[in-house]
């Protein structure tokens, strides 16, 4: 357990609306080790972004973390989010066109971040800002440019430079390439991955793209309706999924190989339940081909640190 940088322990995020109390995250636990890339995958609305917001203490009201603890470098940070934000854990968002303040030069935004976190002089900060831009492949002389003069991919590079500037140990990347052209996606992912590997920075990479998960991550967590369905070594989980939902995700991922032409894709029938219409028991059971009696009655816990599925109750998973 010692090499865990971050431990999310049984957190729930709830908010009230006029229909009652809804759980956006339900009893979620996961760990991130030093230097590793943890993927988080799941359909839109599964709670991926919410997990990132909870870790940073940036849940928008009326939502709030109603139970659980977040441990970082061996300390509970439930009440210390401000001290870790940016400096220790940073986050980048999906839409690079919206992530930079349109009215301020990128240099000003970089300097502000560096001067806030690092105890350096202004000229040293400028030096670092230039170096930061260079590292993400942007001409350092563009320090005085405004965000709108950059393309989407370039802006995401600036965003990465900003997130890395305070030298955090963990970066939460919330679908960082979803809004970009396919050809740019790979560049940005590679850049992020390489820069973090060099620095030993861990990444939580949120995505709904199984291909990205396969190519980029060391471990992967699968979220379904605010709960963890499965977590484990990426290769293990993708080649030998234990949760029927993961199995469905893997089977429904398009691939390009000689056998795949004109074959129909597998589809998981039905849709993920809305938060205000959560079924009893396992949230996935109404769509599950393998559901047994128990699945509609009791919510499964995560068995063998791997998957939350009653089918595994009596099966020891040997990795």
């Amino acid at each position: 357990m010692d090499d865990n940088l971050l431990e999310v322990r049984n957190i729930s995020v709830t908010f009230k609306n006029r229909y009652g109390t809804l759980k956006a995250l339900d009893n979620l636990s996961l760990n991130v080790k030093k230097g590793e890339i943890l993927g988080l995958v799941g359909e839109s609305g599964a709670g991926k972004s919410m997990t990132g917001a909870a870790i940073l203490g940036l849940i928008d009201p009326p939502g709030h973390m109603s139970s659980g603890e977040i441990w970082y470098k061996g300390k509970c940070i439930n009440d210390a989010h401000e001290a870790i934000r940016g400096r220790e854990i940073s986050m980048i968002f999906q839409d690079p066109l919206m992530s930079l303040n349109p009215l301020r030069r990128i240099g000003d935004q970089l300097l502000e971040t560096i001067l806030t976190h690092m105890n350096v002089t202004k000229s040293e900060a400028i030096k670092r800002a230039r170096k930061g831009l260079e590292e993400v492949g942007i001409d350092p002389n563009r320090l005085n440019s405004y965000p709108h003069t950059f393309s989407g991919g370039m802006r995401q590079r600036v965003v990465i430079a900003l997130a890395l500037a305070p030298e955090p140990s963990l970066i939460i990347a919330d679908e960082p390439t979803t809004a970009l052209d396919v050809s740019v996606q790979a560049q940005i992912l590679d850049l992020l991955k390489n820069l973090c590997k060099e620095r030993g920075t861990s990444i939580i990479l949120v995505t709904h793209d199984m291909g990205v998960i396969a190519q980029t991550t060391d471990r992967v967590g699968v979220l379904y309706a605010g709960r963890l369905a499965e977590i484990g070594d990426t290769r293990e989980v993708l080649t030998n999924p234990k949760h029927p939902y993961t199995k469905g995700l893997v089977d429904s991922t398009p691939r390009i190989d000689a056998n795949s032409f004109y074959k129909e894709l597998y589809q998981i029938s039905g849709t993920m339940p809305k938060l205000d219409a959560m079924p009893n028991g396992c949230a996935f059971h109404p769509r599950c081909e393998f559901a047994i009696d128990k699945c509609s009655k009791e919510t499964p816990q995560v068995f063998s640190d791997r998957a939350a599925c009653w089918l595994l109750e009596n099966e020891a998973i040997v990795e």
Binding site: L58, G86, S90, S99, L100, N101, T113, T116, P166, I172
Partner: peptide, 8 residues
């Protein structure tokens, strides 16, 4: 949100 996440 990004400015907040950067710890400003």
């Amino acid at each position: 949100r990004f400015a907040k996440a950067l710890g400003l």
